[in-house]
């Protein structure tokens, strides 16, 4: 029983991390049809900013958390301004490849200015303690992660429903042209989307740093790859889809790890990706994608 609870908490926390990142990808995609490959480097930037501010400024973890989230938001908005504004409205491939180039540039900047070896930043390690709840021993980090993700999703929901910018974002996902005709500035809406995606990446970054304790140029790559997969399972660009896909992926990953014999542990990744491929064959546009005819205005 406690094994079951432990593993389901594992699945939830994995899923929460993927959902946070996937939401960031989906919100940008829904508005400007950009597959943001550089999202992982936003997370890595957060990691490095923690390493820098943590050694130079303060050791107070609460201030540092704010710094990490702000750094991620800032870099996401700057990337939009510098790199992605030029390809707004271009076709999918152009945007995807631009994001992909930005990601390579940032990774190599980290390599050039930092170091190929991990840079230690252990300020958030204290989040990860083993708690004993009755018979069950769980990691506190996993509880925080799940709770924060749920809170972030609720906050995002309120933001999207109650504020002008939030409503503009939702409307822009349906018809950007119309939003502009209603008098909202396109640049502001898109920058808002990137800021939110940076905010979510910052939250994810805090948890990733708490687990790793060090920043590395490629640290964002694997989580974002999984988040992409989550987005695709759920239906690319759909926000509920991103959350659903994230949690499904977390569950699948933990299930595969449990079910697969120990000797085949290295194949867990392969099995998860194969499952994803099968889902895509069953529903080419993802689970929660709206029924849409080819040629409809997007």
């Amino acid at each position: 029983m406690d094994y079951l609870i432990q593993q389901s908490l594992n699945a939830l926390s994995f899923g929460a991390e993927y959902a946070l990142i996937a939401l960031g990808l989906a919100i940008v995609f829904s508005i400007m049809r950009l597959v943001n490959f550089a999202h992982g480097e936003v997370i890595a930037f957060g990691g490095y900013s923690l390493a820098v501010t943590g050694t130079l400024l303060t050791g107070n973890p609460w201030i540092l958390m704010a710094c990490v989230v702000l750094a991620c938001m800032a870099v996401a908005v700057v990337l939009e301004r510098v790199a992605f504004r030029t390809v707004r409205g271009a076709d999918l491939t152009t945007g995807l490849l631009t994001a992909f180039g930005v990601s390579i540039i940032l990774q190599n900047l980290f390599l050039l200015l930092g170091s190929p070896r991990p840079v230690a930043a252990t300020q958030f390690i204290f989040l990860d303690r083993t708690l004993t709840l009755g018979p069950v021993r769980v990691s506190s980090l996993q509880i925080y992660e799940t709770a924060v993700t749920v809170a972030a999703i609720v906050a995002l929901l309120l933001f999207l429903r109650r504020t002008t910018l939030g409503m503009a974002l939702r409307a822009a996902a349906l018809d950007f042209e119309m939003v502009r005709l209603c008098g909202l500035r396109a640049n502001r809406v898109v920058a808002g989307a990137f800021a939110i995606s940076g905010f979510l990446a910052g939250l994810a970054c805090i948890f990733i740093m708490a687990r790793r304790g060090s920043a590395q140029p490629h640290m964002g790559f694997d989580p974002v790859l999984s988040a992409f997969v989550a987005c695709v399972i759920g239906g690319f660009g759909s926000l509920p889809g991103a959350v659903l896909g994230g949690f499904l992926l977390g569950i699948a990953e933990v299930a595969v790890l449990i079910l697969l014999p120990q000797s085949a542990g290295g194949l867990a990744h392969a099995v998860v990706f194969a499952l994803v491929a099968l889902i895509l064959v069953w529903r080419p546009d993802g689970i929660l994608s709206p029924a849409r005819e080819k040629g409809d205005k997007l």
Binding site: G101, I105, Q107, N108, P116, P217
Partner: peptide, 22 residues
């Protein structure tokens, strides 16, 4: 010694091409 310069150049080429010569 500038480790990572070749990757930087590669990424720069991709972004510049996409921005100016899609």
């Amino acid at each position: 010694e500038l480790l990572g310069l070749s990757g930087l150049a590669l990424g720069g080429v991709i972004v510049a091409v996409m921005a100016f010569l899609p």
